[in-house]
Amino acid sequence: MKRATPWLFLAPYLLLFSAFVAAPVLYGLWMSLHNWDQFLPEKPFIGLENYANLFTPGSAKAGPFWDAMLATGIFTLFSVPLLVVLPLGVALLLNRRFKGRAVFRAIYFAPYVLGVVVVSMVFRFVLDPNIGALNHLLGTTTPWTTALPWAWVSLIGMTVWWTLGFNAVIYLAGLQDIDRSLYDAAAVDGAGRWQQFWNVTLPSLRPVTVFVVTVTILASANLFGQSYLMTQGAPEERTRSAIMFIAEEGFQDFNLGSAAAMSYVLAMFLMALSAGVFFFFRKRGAA
């Protein structure tokens, strides 16, 4: 009985975890070893061929896959720093006492409640190079959605505008959690505003920051809706993200085995990246 108790406590979650996480993960691994078309009776076992295709330079699968990985990488590289730093600034401002604070908090958070479809469609027409409102107002012909690097500027800018509020709210909660007495003690020791921020605010926010960084990296690496709807991968599929390509491979071209292999490669990258984030922040904490 005693031995069963922990398992009984674990059971509800364990059941869901096995059914909806562990089992699909293993099933996906099994699929990735086959030429798996979900609607063909024969699903021949091909060993590691799906993986080998991805690592054969110049092959028809490797080229577009790594292009898509690169697109996701570029997006993540530029959007994550912005989405970690800017919301912190916004949160610091919104944490001060001033008239209409609640209104501003609502305004910054507002875009986040919009769906990706709404945001992307609105930006697509605002940013259209030839018939868009922005170029009309500026009197320019900048190809915001149809050429590089502008398409990235648009995608990252839109995503920052859209999701900044979410990270800001998390930071704001973190800021409100910091013990006031720490600031008082720092002030008594003669610390200025900047020193207080550097020595009290930032270290106190570390757990919140780890969360924000990790969640933002994963969200950025899952880039799909924005480029699917606003740029449609243009120009020339160069803003086609890894997830977009995997979805096409699996559900449009009916190559689920190959798509599963791609998902595993992407997952490996994300796991390594997340581990790196934890390692980075832990080391700083110990120092």
Binding site: D128, P129, N130, I131, T141, T145, T146, Q232, P235
Partner: peptide, 18 residues
Amino acid sequence: SPRNVGQDADSIAFKNGQ
């Protein structure tokens, strides 16, 4: 034709008389 025409922009421009 202009450069860098976006998706559907040619059709919208047609309707606008552009």
